[in-house]
């Protein structure tokens, strides 16, 4: 018998209760997902059992790769213009700032996105569920942050889609983000969600972040001022990179 949504919901609730109890007992509120999170079945054989080794002496990891105008084209930030015609779906503009933990902008670094189309289908061989591909939408984009750490994309709101974690599993709509900081140790890959999605409470990936306040930091805000008349709806989402406080090159980057 495959696991049901009720099984997964129960596991999510049990872990949530256990974490809340630990926090009430003085443990710090977790800011990141639990690596060992059984409701998301793929974690079971893929998370390390040994504790991570805290590395006092690092220099390579406190610096990181750089990207430039050779690595992006101006068209890359507009995912609605990568085909011969217009993609189907709800056009959105998405913008925000990339900051470090001290609130400093992460300048001229690479932000990459990828996502399903409006019907919830990825342009990937392994996604064969019965939703249409859109010949005018590949769902990948990239840009460099500006001097204030700002990024922006124009795209299509992705659809929810099914997966096989358990019976009748559906992912809330999301856009995958990959962000580079000035230090390799600030690297972040995450997912941005849309407000008020009814699938949040059923999704083990979203709920792998056990703190409600931390989960809220993965959800974009609808911002009417970012909407364009007769063109697109606007969302704002700021990103704060984790990582060591002692990053090099604090000035001039």
């Amino acid at each position: 018998m495959p696991d049901t949504q009720a099984d997964i919901d129960r596991e999510i609730a049990d872990i949530s209760t256990a974490v809340a109890k630990a926090v009430a007992g003085g443990e710090p509120e977790p800011e990141q997902p639990l690596r060992d999170y059984k409701p998301y079945r793929s974690t079971v054989l893929r998370h390390p059992h040994q504790p991570l080794i805290l590395t006092e002496q690092a220099d390579t990891e406190l610096r990181g790769p750089v990207f430039g105008v050779t690595d992006v084209t101006e068209l890359d930030r507009d995912l609605t213009r990568h085909g011969l015609g217009e993609p189907l779906g709800e056009r959105i503009t998405l913008t925000g700032r990339v900051l470090d933990r001290d609130g400093r902008p992460v300048r001229r670094q690479l932000v990459e996105v990828w996502q399903a189309n409006a019907a919830g289908r990825y342009a990937h061989h392994r996604d064969q569920h019965p939703a249409p591909l859109d010949p005018n939408f590949t769902g990948t984009g990239r840009c460099l942050t500006d001097d204030e750490g700002r990024y922006s994309f124009t795209t299509i709101k992705p659809g929810a889609y099914p997966w096989r974690n358990h019976l009748n599993a559906w992912r809330p709509a999301h856009i995958h983000f990959s962000i580079f900081g000035t230090a390799f140790a600030q690297r972040l890959v995450t997912q941005m969600y849309f407000p008020n999605d009814p699938l949040f409470r059923h999704d083990p990936i979203f709920n792998s972040v056990p703190s409600e306040a931390a989960r809220q930091r993965m959800i974009a805000t609808y911002d009417h001022d970012l909407s364009s008349p007769e063109l697109s709806l606007g969302y704002r989402w700021d990103i704060v990179l984790d990582g060591p406080s002692a990053t090099w090159m604090e000035e001039g980057r």
């Binding site: 342009a123 995450t190 990936i205 979203f206 306040a213 930091r217």
Partner: peptide
């Protein structure tokens, strides 16, 4: 500032990142 939580890269990055 509190960090944005990480999430898995998932199975479908292949047409975007490499």
């Amino acid at each position: 500032m509190k960090p944005t939580p990480s999430q898995t890269v998932g199975p479908f990055f292949g047409y975007a990142l490499p």
